[in-house]
């Protein structure tokens, strides 16, 4: 099993505030890794650092064995890294079809046609403005957009945010399908139980450092620990129980 991502000792700042204090993590081929943590622990910053959107001041990032430290985001994306940003960031004033024409053209199985086959709902709404889509449709559009890069590594920032539980299951199924097709996944989630149920391994961030790492199932079994580390409330676990 070879490593898709190796990040070592990432130190990232927003202006003068020091957000990441030496984050190291690894994602291997064929696995879903989840990154958990309370609000403000640095989850999004970690993903932005990996994508080159908020480059770390210190540390090293290797993707597919290539040193990408200091690379601009577009070069990292072109290596085959799909990024689904927090809040989806779809282009609300563009049509669904135009949203899907933004990503760089790449060779592979994902083309506009195969994407429309995978997401028939997007095909139906082709000429609707991105801003008119429901939350679930927007999430699908954001994932579809990332898939068009034919990625071998998918980074998702809180895909379940603001979605109805049924839709969340759809999204998770899509993510698992991607994993089964050989795409490595790094998943940031606020909803710890949801993430742990779907992931192979888990990291927990606390105040800008990794405070726990291990198999997802092992962490999930230790409810107290999950609550303490990831700030998962009883409410979220109750919602999950219903779905």
């Amino acid at each position: 099993m070879s490593a898709v991502l190796v990040a070592e000792d990432l130190q990232t700042y927003y202006g003068k505030s020091h957000i990441l204090h030496g984050v190291s993590l690894t994602v291997n081929e064929g696995e879903i890794v989840t990154l958990l943590g309370r609000n403000g622990a640095g989850k999004t910053t970690t993903l932005r650092s990996l994508m080159g959107l908020t480059p770390p001041k210190q540390g090293r990032i290797q993707i597919f064995g290539q040193d990408v430290t200091g690379w601009p985001a577009y070069k990292i994306a072109r290596l085959g890294v799909g990024y689904v940003p927090e809040g989806r960031k779809i282009f609300g004033h563009l049509t669904v079809h135009d949203n899907l024409r933004v990503p760089a053209l790449t060779k592979g199985r994902w083309t506009l046609e195969t994407i429309y086959k995978l997401f028939p709902r997007l095909d139906e709404r082709r000429s609707s403005k991105g801003g008119q889509l429901s939350g679930g449709e927007q999430e699908m559009l954001a994932i579809a957009r990332a898939l068009l890069l034919n990625p071998r590594f998918l980074i998702l920032d809180e895909p379940s945010q603001g979605l109805a539980p049924v839709i969340v299951e759809d999204v998770m199924n899509t993510i698992r399908t991607m994993r089964d097709e050989g795409i490595a996944v790094l998943l940031v989630e606020q909803n710890a139980w949801l993430a742990l149920r779907n992931a192979d391994r888990a990291y927990v961030l606390g105040d800008g450092s990794i405070v726990h790492e291990g198999p997802a199932a092992e962490l999930a079994a230790d409810e107290k620990r999950v609550k303490a580390l990831a700030g998962a409330s009883l409410e979220t676990s109750a919602i999950d129980a219903v779905t």
């Binding site: 985001a73 072109r78 990024y83 960031k89 990503p103």
Partner: peptide
């Protein structure tokens, strides 16, 4: 047109 709204996301799309 996409970049007018959100250049960063355009960049992350390669």
């Amino acid at each position: 047109r996409a970049g007018n709204a959100d250049l960063e996301t355009v960049s992350a799309l390669g």
